[in-house]
Design a protein around this nucleic acid. Structure first.
Lengths: 316, 316
DNA sequence: GTTGCCAGTTTGTCATGGACAAAATCAGAT
DNA sequence: ATCTGATTTTGTCCATGACAAACTGGCAAC
């Protein structure tokens, strides 16, 4: 029963818990003098828990647009209370909150897992999938994102929300039996993008419109996306980027993928992560759910014959 | 429409696509002369696609127990055909394959996503959740794991399998309404463990036995597991480790978590990843699904009064 | 007041080469 | 054949230097 006292974390553990790379941790130490880990007998860094805690707070604020140089000077209490620095990037055409969101957030705060799930399920039954996605899940996800960014929500509370919602959406999509028509749409996310909710929301809407979706889950390596598109003969490849995904990397990824993918395969990129992105050539950006359903309709309008290869975008 | 020709990958892209850390990529180059990337104008490594392909093959073989020094000398063709080097670690008490597995694998190979899903769904309806999990999903997951390890399966095929199965299990669990009794079990995985199937299988079985499961999804940072256990007043914390998870790191993680978690909270670790693990003190290892249900029964036998704090394990 | 441009600063990522401990292997003894 | 200790292999860590992309802030033009 002798607890090995948790004296501290090594650099790999801190990388895991904070999401800050080892390179960043070392270079911050060099430049700013923080973090200032102890050293073990072997000269390796040992981070005390308080410093890890502070790093987590800083990481959260950086995702909100703050920069490390400024954060370094602030005391911990100031960090807790700092507002987002980046404009909220309000999604155009987003459905307004009908008032239910606050109730859901409250359930999460009280850690009432079963209550949350039950209420959500009840709402799905009442609204039907289409309205459930656009009017309940989408505003709720946005609200959770905001809460999360302002530090009001613990990691595990966000996890619980995701798990419960994910479950319900998958359940609903799974029970959609109907006929599937072209296009066949491969849905997945980039290797560094673990968020699945956006993917599920768009799949629900596309499936409702009869599209033939092939969901690959998240985090598919680029070469495998290309292979999967070929194997499934997908006409469209859809990627989802969450709000947290660095815009610069999204652009690079899309360009690389566009270069590797056959020209006949359309490439769509959706999610709040593409809101402030200049569209790379040959990539269709879908910042909102509405844009996704519109893109589907548009594709069908321009591709009447099922198997025809695309010629020119605007051919009459 | 000028495709920027995909001349090669930078080191970060290779890390993503192969799972080999930058440190490893550099040290291999230094020691073995492979990989041997070109350099761009800035002196940074540019890996040609063939080398990335070879690295992926090597990575797969290393997960099978081969060592890089040996693999370096082999030509690519030899790599493709190399057998596993590690004993298969047959799970004791595993349900035998009733013959359906081959059919499912064949559907995956033909990339028949909808057929796969439909067949699975049909089977769930016929078997009921309990038998579906133990007799269909578990053998199938094991078979997929083996196929994967032998390189018979592409990443995206495995992704499709996971997504379809996950969907079905979540759907089934979600529709389990019944009463929930103690213990409350927090279910999640370590930060580096993205596999969710084992978690869902065990949740299905525990929920069938009326346990009050709180599913947090995968990849929860350790500090958040501790917080979540407190917030949800969980009596048990359950972690799942897949076959691919390095045993050494699992042991370290469990010890760290055990030290941080209140002594009154039980810690269970399941999945094929704990098969060859010496159980750290105060951690219950559950290498099979049967062991998990047994552990639940055992907990209840020893904790008759709902809220009683555990005293001594063997108190009559 | 807003927009566009430019110089300066900040910041993340990459490179090199050295070091060491844990794991795996091998050799020799029981 | 099994165990134990020596030896090799291998991943991770360290320090430091460098640079390009992103961001900032000021100034000019609309």
């Amino acid at each position: 029963m002798t607890n090995t006292l948790p004296a501290g974390f090594n650099i790999a553990a801190v990388e895991r818990d904070t999401g800050l790379s080892k390179d960043v941790l070392r270079v911050w130490e060099r430049r700013y003098g923080f973090p200032a880990p102890a050293r073990d007998a072997n000269g390796e860094r040992v981070y005390p828990p308080e410093q890890v805690e502070r790093l987590r707070a800083m990481r959260r604020l950086m995702d909100l647009g703050h920069r490390p140089g400024k954060l370094m000077r602030l005391p911990l209490e100031a960090l807790q209370a700092l507002p987002p620095r980046r404009r909220a990037a309000a999604a155009p055409g987003a459905a307004p909150d009908d008032g239910s969101v606050a109730g859901f957030v409250e359930l999460l705060r009280r850690h009432d897992a079963r209550g949350f799930q039950a209420t959500l399920q009840h709402r799905l039954g009442r609204q039907g999938l289409q309205r459930f996605v656009t009017q309940t899940i989408a505003p709720l996800a946005r609200a959770i994102g905001t809460e999360w960014e302002s530090g009001q929500l613990a990691v595990f509370e966000e996890h619980l929300f995701t798990e419960a919602t994910e479950r319900l959406l998958r359940q609903a999509i799974g029970s959609l039996a109907g006929v599937r028509e072209p296009p066949r749409i491969l849905l997945t996310s980039a290797p560094d993008e673990p968020h699945v909710l956006g993917l599920l929301m768009v799949e629900a809407l596309l499936a409702l419109d009869g599209a033939d979706c092939v969901p690959l889950g998240t985090r598919t390596p680029l070469p495998d996306i290309v292979r999967a598109a070929a194997a499934h003969r997908a006409e469209v490849v859809g990627l989802s980027f969450s709000r947290a995904f660095p815009a610069r990397r999204a652009a690079a990824l899309l360009e690389e993928l566009r270069a590797t993918l056959p020209a006949a395969t359309a490439l769509w990129a959706g999610g709040e992560g593409v809101l402030r992105l200049t569209p790379p050539a040959g990539v269709l950006l879908l910042p909102t759910l509405e844009a996704a359903t519109a893109a589907l309709a548009d594709w069908r309008a321009h591709q009447p014959a099922a198997q025809r290869a695309p010629l020119t975008e605007d051919l009459p």
